[in-house]
């Protein structure tokens, strides 16, 4: 089943998370077409794709590093930055758009000085915009650290953010 050559490269570190990633890649058979699945596996474990991980995938799956980089940057889901303590996804799909979702984004920007796609200077909060997560009955909505909140208001989002950021103040970022 596995096409892994005998001199297959070793994972970038002996972090236990790599064991699970290696197992996934082995199940997929180390084929070049497993590249995206491999990236999902890495990002699931580490929260982002670090350069060493991309080099490892390139070597293991025998795919040019340039192509690996091309794929990693093509898809919005993949990120090459380490995760921050908190992530707030603001949905701006059609329904959220006409139900004043953009006002939520504006409120976050006013309060924290960061717009969509940016991270606060202290690294505590990332703001991400999404084009519809398919939960339109909850519009307008945000996904704060994985929890879907909606229908919501700019004020409620500000309060939720304030309280969850205050709770974890001083802690190191996740997975650092």
């Amino acid at each position: 089943m596995t096409q892994r050559p005998p001199d297959a490269p070793a994972p970038p570190s002996d972090d236990a998370r790599w064991k699970r990633i290696v197992a996934t890649l082995r199940r997929l058979g180390h084929r070049p077409q497993s590249l995206i699945e491999g990236m999902h596996a890495v990002q699931n474990e580490f929260g982002y794709l670090e350069p060493a991980a991309l080099r490892y995938l390139a070597e293991l799956l025998v795919v040019p590093l340039a192509k690996v980089h091309g794929v990693a940057t093509f898809y919005h889901h993949f990120t090459m930055r380490p995760p921050t303590r908190h992530t707030c996804v603001v949905c701006l799909g059609t329904v959220c758009h006409i139900k004043r979702g953009p006002a939520i984004l504006a409120e976050i920007e006013k309060r924290y000085g960061v717009g969509a796609g940016a991270t606060t200077a202290d690294g505590s909060l990332s703001v991400v915009e999404a084009r519809c997560i398919g939960a339109c009955s909850l519009a307008p909505l945000v996904v704060l650290d994985g929890e879907t909140i909606g229908p919501t208001t700019p004020e409620e989002v500000r309060e939720r953010l304030d309280s969850c950021i205050a709770k974890t103040e001083g802690e190191p970022p996740r997975d650092a």
Binding site: G93, T94, V95, H97, R131, C132, G134, A135, C136
Partner: peptide, 11 residues
């Protein structure tokens, strides 16, 4: 890959 904003039938 249901991507149209405002669509959640397949989901």
């Amino acid at each position: 890959d249901e991507g149209d904003p405002g669509a959640f039938m397949d989901r």
